[in-house]
Amino acid sequence: MVGSGAVLSVWLIEEINMERGYWIKSKPVYTSLKWHEKATSHLVLATGIGGMAVLKLFQQMHPTQPVKVLYGKYGQMDADYSDTLKMVVPEGLHIHKFDDALLTQFQLELRDAQMGLRIYVAGSEGFIWDVVAAAKPFGIQEMEIMKEQADTLARSVYCVHCKTISKYVTTNITACCGCERMLFVRDHFSRNLGAYMGLMVDAESPGELPAIEEIYP
């Protein structure tokens, strides 16, 4: 179906594949949010159902350092936790209607921030990697940001043929929004692009498509 393993097999990588008989996977692993004990301040970002992760975070022992929460009530599943958050977060809560406005405030916060700031994000995978991309120009590496996947499992898919990214893909096979080729969504993720690789599914046998299923609801 797909071509030979699209990894740079420096060595032994084939051995690993052969033993297990599966394609290389590089899907990021997400955790549950937990306060860093060592920090000088905390910045929490969430959208939609990600608000629940923030509520859980505030159930934990409250840090002694200053905390700020940026919440986007605009979420894929229309779940709005802003009222509950207002009750739980004592101060420093900022509510935005759209992700763009939230990310703009995020970058303004980073401009004046200092080493010791710890960043937490909860939301859809797309939102998580938008936050990572916004933090990058400030010298923040993605592994420093604690990430919890909440909300939809939908994927951003990078078409390796036309380089367009299709957002909110919920199926194993999808039509590229750039070139309209039918793409198989591989479990190979680029943190740089914040997207999974999509590869034309019927190149060897045009028109022969496997069953399309919704596996990332």
């Binding site: 921030a113 080493m115 700031l117 400030f138 923040i140």
Partner: peptide, 9 residues
Amino acid sequence: LLSQQPLGS
């Protein structure tokens, strides 16, 4: 020294 450095230090 270390509590007053910009991000990315």
